[in-house]
Amino acid sequence: MKIFPRLLAAASLLLLAACVPRTAVRLQGDAGLLGEQQARERLLAGVDHWTLQGRLGVSDGKNSGSGDLTWTQDGDRYEFVVRAPVTGKSFRLSGGAQGALLEGMDGGPLHGDDAESLMHKALGWEVPLRELRAWVLGLRADAGPAELSFGNDRLPSLLQQDGWSVDYREWDATRQPPLPKKVYAQKPPYKVRLSVESWQMGKGGEQGVGNGEH
């Protein structure tokens, strides 16, 4: 039931190899840095209508997959479309509080109680989508305690939560508040690499947060 054939694995490994961690400045979260983060989180807390486009790479330490990603969040509803660049095949994961639907698989659409378990069952991918919805905005998720470290730009550099280490490699500081451009999460042996090419905030691409179109 794997959606990506073996010929995609080589391209995926090249993508993941390019994501080898670099040496980063890590500043402990003092009162000033944490205060700035809390202000960002307050500004973004109500932002639940957005679309991002970029690249997604996933690995379980043995197998990997990658593709172009379009992720649309509309309140509790989501649509997660991954298109494989080599095969041209794609799958669409959508749903909300009432369950999840995975389309594009051999054998027809698949239904499940939630997106994470459905994706794991069908693809073998371990992607913490509930937490990633917050992490991709540079926020702490509602998944228990979190530890933050910051870079010289005073933005989060490393977030550790729910057993995952989330490495923020690049931010779009032209937006206010800034939004992540590269988010690399890992919980050995699982790795998720997300490179954001564009953000659209608000329904229909309306700019609710930030400045300008990206």
Rank of each mutant, 00 (worst) to 15 (best):
T70E: 12
L123W: 03
G205D: 10
A84T: 03
M1D: 10
V47F: 09
G144P: 02
L69M: 13
W164G: 08
P85Y: 08
T174R: 15
K2G: 07
R169C: 04
G95C: 05
L132G: 08
S64G: 11
E79P: 00
E103N: 02
V127R: 05
P145Q: 06
D48G: 10
V166C: 02
E170A: 15
S12Q: 07
E103Q: 15
P177G: 08
L148K: 06
S117H: 02
F4K: 05
A146M: 04
P156Q: 09
Q98A: 14
G95Y: 01
R169M: 01
T87D: 07
V136Q: 09
Y190W: 11
V209W: 04
V25M: 11
G88S: 06
D48S: 14
P109A: 09
L148G: 12
A141K: 10
A11C: 03
L69R: 09
K187H: 12
V209P: 08
S59E: 11
V166S: 09
E41I: 03
L14M: 06
K2W: 00
D68M: 04
L34C: 11
G212Y: 06
A143I: 01
E126I: 01
A84L: 11
R169L: 10
K121W: 01
A122N: 04
L16K: 05
H214D: 13
G54L: 03
A97K: 03
V25K: 09
E116D: 10
G124I: 11
P178E: 04
D74Q: 14
W71V: 05
E79N: 07
T51A: 13
V127D: 12
G75Q: 10
V82P: 07
A143Y: 00
Q53G: 13
R22C: 04
R22P: 01
G54C: 07
L27D: 09
R6A: 14
N152A: 14
G204L: 13
K187C: 10
R26C: 03
K191D: 12
S198P: 00
K89E: 14
G61A: 08
E131F: 00
G96P: 03
I3T: 12
L129Y: 02
T51I: 05
L132V: 05
E41G: 11
K187Y: 00
I3S: 08
R175T: 01
E197I: 02
R55Q: 12
L13W: 11
R92V: 14
G67K: 02
F80P: 01
T174L: 07
Q38R: 15
Q176R: 14
Y190E: 13
P109W: 02
V82D: 13
N63V: 03
E197C: 00
C19M: 10
K191M: 08
L44H: 12
L69W: 04
R42K: 15
Y190S: 14
E41Q: 15
D68Q: 11
A17D: 15
V192K: 09
G35N: 08
G95S: 06
L194S: 11
